[in-house]
Design a protein around this nucleic acid. Structure first.
Lengths: 165, 165
DNA sequence: TGGCGCACTGTGCAGATTGTCCAGTGTTCT
DNA sequence: AGAACACTGGACAATCTGCACAGTGCGCCA
């Protein structure tokens, strides 16, 4: 779906200051409250905005170590049963099936490098996992972000605005 | 920092239903409103909760292709100048310096496989980037999640509750 | 060209929520 | 014993929300 400049500004505003309400946002953007409400509804309905839940930082929770683990899978039943078992490990934050020599790529966190060993053992113990090769994140140069993408999409896909009132 | 069971339930509640306010949350959890407010303040202050901003889905924005790209860097000035230039590419969602044969790992999105080629060309054009090898995400088996981790941390680190009033 | 539908504006209202106080109570730590 | 702390339960004014309404340009289609 395409978003326009106003959508972009709206997302940026709520990203930077999530606590401002619809009313304050409408004041800052110079549009009517109903417009902000309608835009927000649409963005949520279309799935562009997944939600407004709290973003939890594993590091602050006591899991400062992040690793990316490439798995090789013995594939009698496909990837799904493996993924299902991986999902039971809380330290597995994310998992994808991928192209290339590996079969799956997971993001894993741990309390320390020693703890990472424990978590990896847990991953290797998952039935169907044949091999795991991991790289540790030494530093996060660019933390997960979508704002630049939103701006790019807003600039590219801009629906023509409809004036009125 | 350690969180207890109430913190865990609080985070879960707001993750599942972000729109409920502090008051409704206090009712659901069976605690006083001030308690919820204080807990939320503390979790935000300590960094466990990074924020309540909108979570944007690149796929819904028109970028359904995700790739993980391992970069090899020519390192006259370290990784930072490269990261800085990568940060100017909106499709670069995330970047880490890593251990192992590669130097950096980035998450990249694109509008299509053909578009991914364009983005990769942009990455390769970054000064200091020598080589890039990418794997494409075919499916997201486990979408980014932290809830299980929160529960694990709540179970492990539980501060002893202080009763009162 | 005329008509319809859409997106937006600006307004109003009742009800709910927020931010911010307060005093009181029971625990834990010193 | 005393201090510090976390929580309860209550109160208040100010604000925001959800919802509704009429009116206005503009694009699209017949």
């Amino acid at each position: 779906m395409a978003i326009d400049a106003l959508d972009g500004r709206l997302i940026e505003l709520f990203t930077v200051e999530p606590r401002i309400g619809v009313l304050e946002a409408s004041r800052r953007l110079g549009v009517a409250r109903g417009t902000v409400q309608a835009r927000l509804d649409r963005l949520s309905r279309e799935g562009v905005i997944r939600g407004f839940g709290p973003q939890v930082d594993p590091a602050a929770l006591g899991y400062p170590v992040t690793a990316f683990v490439t798995l090789q899978i013995r594939q009698p039943g496909g990837h799904d049963p493996v993924a299902e078992r991986l999902a039971r490990i809380p330290e597995v934050i994310e998992a994808h099936t991928i192209t290339g020599p590996g079969d799956m790529l997971c993001r894993i966190v741990a309390r320390s490098n020693a703890d990472l060993q424990r978590v990896l053992d847990g991953v290797l113990a998952v039935e169907g996992v044949e091999r795991a090769s991991s790289v540790i994140s030494l530093a996060t140069q660019i933390p997960h972000r979508t704002l630049p993408l939103v701006h790019a999409a807003a600039a590219a896909g801009g629906r023509r605005p409809r004036a009125g009132g």
